[in-house]
Design a protein around this nucleic acid. Sequence first.
RNA 1: CGGGGCGUGGCUCAGGCCGGUUAGAGCGCGCGGUUUGGGACCGCGAGGUCGGCGGUUCAAGUCCGCCCGCCCCGACCA
Length: 492
Amino acid sequence: MCDRGFEDISGGENRMAKKITPRSKDYSRWYTEVIQRAELADYAPVKGCMVVRPYGYALWENIKEGLDRRFKATGHVNAYFPLFIPMSFLQKEAEHVEGFSPELAVVTHGGGKELEEPLVVRPTSETIIGHMYAQWVQSYRDLPILINQWANVVRWEMRTRLFLRTTEFLWQEGHTVHATYEEAQEETLRMLNVYADFAENDAAIPVIKGRKSESEKFAGADMSYTIEAMMGDRRALQAGTSHNLGQNFAKAFDIKYLDQNNELQYCWTTSWGVSWRILGAVIMVHGDDQGLILPPKLAPYQVVIVPIWRGEEERSQVLEAAVQVQAALEGVRVKLDDRDEYSPGWKFNEWELRGVPLRIEIGPRDVAQEQVVLARRDVAGPEGKSAVAMSELAQRVPQLLDTIQADLLARARKFQRDNTYEPTTYEELKEAVGKGFALAYWCGDAQCEAKVKDETKATIRCIPLDQGGIGPGHCVVCGKEASERAVFARAY
RNA sequence: CGGGGCGUGGCUCAGGCCGGUUAGAGCGCGCGGUUUGGGACCGCGAGGUCGGCGGUUCAAGUCCGCCCGCCCCGACCA
């Protein structure tokens, strides 16, 4: 895992500086450079596609593990459905096909012959899963069905961005079937809460849970719910969605059951998904001008040990101590960087770029004093360093990782709060969406929503479920009575 | 798809306007040696169909035409 030699691609006069473009100078450039230099991912030869490199994939595996564990704990099981979907399936749900047809990849040939019916490369799997569910569900005794799948999907996007919007992406999609609307709604919100719990407790990303407006909801859903997060440039990112599909897909695919009274009923279905986009959120919420800052719960390496020595004698002493420290940290993901060809200073920068939460420095002086130096990634400079006796490490390191995890969430939460405004006039709204989130009354009229989008490029990210206990007010756009406030923001 | 920019060793670029020996630099890479508490240094070395095709010319990285690809900005989206 060593540097492959990405130089400062801003070029020009400071070509020697091995620095990343600062976030304040060009945020999207910073984002792209960090991903490539930290070796999370690389561009693939196919437009809009990317290669996830081992370090990035390890991060994704930790995200998967955190989500999958929660799915299982709420009664879900995993399964796998096919990549190819008959074109006709998409067309069975009117709103669904209208929403997705512009971004479909379609296979027309196979085995050297033109296919009788084109196959769509799944953009999402409601249709093919609905088709199967229709065959599996007969009676109320078959319900609920609580299935999740980990899969790749393809959406032909016009503009792509590493992790945030790629032509092919990895995600999970849960698809459930219920006997009643109430159960489906309960499931929809349960999974929204699972996502929020993961985002805050594992990814250290504070999120706003809310409803999508009609124009922003999933094609084919009765109601879409979202968790929205604020990135480091104050723009919004939808980090996960959960949909109550009502009976739309049940009717399109004939998913019916016989109830206790021997009457045939249409089922109620839900779907919910989180993609590797959330990895982009981790990068943008926590990273700084030195590179990534990974929350300990997701970091592939939670601790990196950098040994420091001069000459052979010191080398063997220091390495011996380093190995002992590594052994003492059982249960912690530790990387011992004993490469000889890089200096300690070089390694410091390297592992900071790659976001390892905690660094342990061990040199001859430390060995003599039976201590090590701990350096926190999230606290720059000497303030983040402390000397700790080797005998205390097994206790102190896990504690410190917990502290870092909590501090990252607290810092992100403060940032979001500090950059959220509550405009009451349209002029104030316009100003607010230029510098962060705007929490403002909205009457629910799509025209007011469209006006804001046209004139400010900000969209309604969600109508928060938690309205803070405040009463009705007046729409920030038209002044009419409004019962709820919405979050307006520029979004990815 | 509209506007802007760019294709030259692995990376970032110079050379191009004004055609002319073996096409350069820094970084990275390989070997040897000295180093190592915040991106060390010396020596030697490997590595290029100058995006592609065609044209002009005695001669094209350089001029002309067409094509391909990539990046940035605008209309869709997890």
